[in-house]
């Protein structure tokens, strides 16, 4: 059993390994990224898993980083919005969000984009806009950019040539 005094953890964030000695077990992944690693792209909209603005990939899966305790994620690979583009070369999802005006204020956008990347990776929605809407419903956008968001996801997915997979059941 590991006692609480040893709150060391190792995370890969956007390909860079971080060995972190946490002084406090309460730190969420979101607060670790924003307040301790200086990665402020992931946003805190509700801090309760209800808005999706904090969405990041943990081991390739989209999750709400506000409801993940950092210390529990020892060994995980994290991808944030800062890890998508290669310099000026945007990830296809990022480019599609610009092209389809899939945002207004931009605050929910990092979460929307990470969610979209996760969704495409999951491969369950295919090219069905209704499935994309359903799968993106964990990301609130108060500005109401949903039309552009759905179009951007479909467009990016088509450009990425993702194979459409069937549903379970």
């Amino acid at each position: 059993m590991e006692a609480s005094s040893s709150l060391s953890l190792s995370l890969s964030v956007n390909g860079t390994r971080h060995d972190i000695a946490l002084d406090d077990p309460r730190v969420t992944l979101l607060d670790l990224l924003r307040e301790r690693l200086g990665l402020t792209g992931s946003k805190k909209g509700c801090d309760r898993g209800q808005c999706g603005a904090c969405t990041v990939l943990v081991n390739g899966r989209r999750v709400n980083s506000c409801l993940s305790l950092a210390v529990s994620l020892d060994g995980a690979e994290i991808t944030t919005i800062e890890g998508l583009a290669q310099g000026d070369a945007l990830h296809p999802v990022q480019a599609a969000f610009i092209a389809h005006d899939g945002f207004q204020c931009g605050f929910c956008t990092p979460g929307q984009i990470m969610s979209a990347v996760g969704l495409i990776r999951e491969g369950h929605a295919g090219d069905d806009p209704e499935r994309v809407r359903e799968a993106m419903s964990g990301n609130l956008c108060r500005c109401g950019a949903y039309i552009g968001i759905t179009q951007a996801v479909l467009d990016a997915q088509a450009k990425m040539g993702t194979e459409q997979q069937g549903e379970a059941a």
Partner: peptide, 19 residues
């Protein structure tokens, strides 16, 4: 035109107050 601040907003580079 697409948004001139689009690149910043899709890369997490747009600085909001709490950032």
């Amino acid at each position: 035109l697409t948004r001139r601040d689009g690149f910043l907003k899709v890369t997490g580079g747009a600085t909001f107050a709490a950032d």
